[in-house]
Amino acid sequence: MSPKPTLQDVASAVGVSRSTVSNAYSRPDQLSSALRARIFEAARQLDYPGPDPTARSLRRGFVGTTGVLFTSKLSYAFTDPFAVRFLAGVASAAEKRGTSLLLVPLPAETAQARSAVENASVDGFCVYCAPEESWVLDIIRRRGLPFVTTAPRPDAGDDRYVGIDERAAARSVADHVAGLGHRRVALLGESTLPDAPPGPLRLAGPGDAPHPTTRGRLTGFADALAAVGVGWTDITVLNATGNSRAAAAAAVAGVFTGDDPPTAVLACSDVLALGVLDTLGGRAAEVSVTGFDDVADAAVAGLTTVRQPAEEKGRIATELLLDPPADAAAGHVLLPTELVVRTSTRPLQRS
């Protein structure tokens, strides 16, 4: 097998230097159109494909790619309605700045997850829904790369983030449900505890949920219920093993058939809430159900939920990453949320 043609082969064929050939590909303004045409014709005849993009990126010091870290499988980015909207915002900001995107799912196995972060060829990371972010951020810092998270942290310092006040937003919808008279309440989250089976689980308190988003929402729910005399031990906590309607159905299986079943379910996402409504079927009028995010199907189902701006979150996260503000405080962005009351919640029916 003959050796692959090189940049030097093209330079020798044309009678110019290696840097001149390189400029034909990367700095065309430095050459006349006639000379560039001669170089490209020689490259074509030699079957030279052009400079190696990886090596060229190393020389330039940047790749031209933004990494988006996901906690779940890659398919999550294309099937979860909130993630799809978030990525639309990321893409719109990236397009304006001429950068591409690399979606990096974090495998469940820790060594593989670390390898994914360590080896991703990117200029920086948008960290979307990573569980217990500290080790992820430590790796990114060791690589010397910038990052933006979507989980606000009180100890963020100079780290940039864009998100919502999860606790306050969750409390708003739980206050609404408590105000309707509900006291037997179930809280439904995705992977509330790692490796826990679907259904009821023991959780000492909302602070024991490892995922920062779930932790914030459970805490907000608990705040509202505590205000009306419902302690944590009186709350049913349910675990869904994924963010899908089927996972929600498995989590609530049997919950409404025992003595004193919940009269309300507060879900940590609209998808889970919709799964609860699917399960209830004709009994949906007996149980109030709420979600979180306000995805498109929420309005169709009449779901009471918390609206947050998904696309704006993705757009701002990418802007903070690619155009960092000089003032650290300007890199801490909290977006507004809105309680949207629909027909899935109603006053407690007293027997």
Rank of each mutant, 00 (worst) to 15 (best):
G67M: 04
G67F: 06
G67T: 01
G67Y: 01
V68S: 06
V68K: 03
L69P: 05
L69D: 03
L69E: 00
L69A: 10
L69N: 04
T71I: 09
T71N: 11
T71Q: 13
T71R: 15
T71H: 13
S72P: 03
K73E: 12
K73F: 00
K73C: 00
K73Q: 15
K73D: 13
K73R: 14
K73T: 11
L74R: 10
L74F: 12
L74M: 11
L74Y: 14
L74K: 07
S75T: 09
S75W: 07
S75Q: 15
S75E: 15
Y76T: 10
Y76I: 08
Y76L: 10
Y76A: 15
A77T: 07
A77K: 04
F78A: 07
F78M: 07
T79F: 08
T79Q: 05
T79A: 09
T79S: 05
T79N: 08
D80G: 04
D80A: 03
D80R: 02
D80N: 08
D80E: 09
P81D: 11
F82W: 15
F82T: 13
F82M: 08
A83K: 06
A83V: 13
A83Y: 09
A83H: 08
A83M: 12
V84L: 11
V84N: 07
V84I: 14
V84P: 02
R85I: 10
R85L: 12
R85W: 02
R85Y: 03
R85E: 15
F86S: 02
F86G: 02
F86Q: 01
F86D: 00
F86K: 01
F86V: 10
L87D: 03
A88V: 08
G89S: 01
G89V: 01
G89E: 00
G89R: 01
V90D: 06
V90A: 10
V90R: 07
V90W: 01
A91C: 05
A91D: 14
A91S: 14
S92K: 09
S92V: 10
A93H: 02
A93E: 04
A93D: 00
A93S: 05
A94K: 06
A94D: 08
A94M: 10
A94V: 12
E95P: 09
E95L: 14
E95C: 09
K96E: 10
K96I: 05
K96S: 14
K96M: 12
K96G: 13
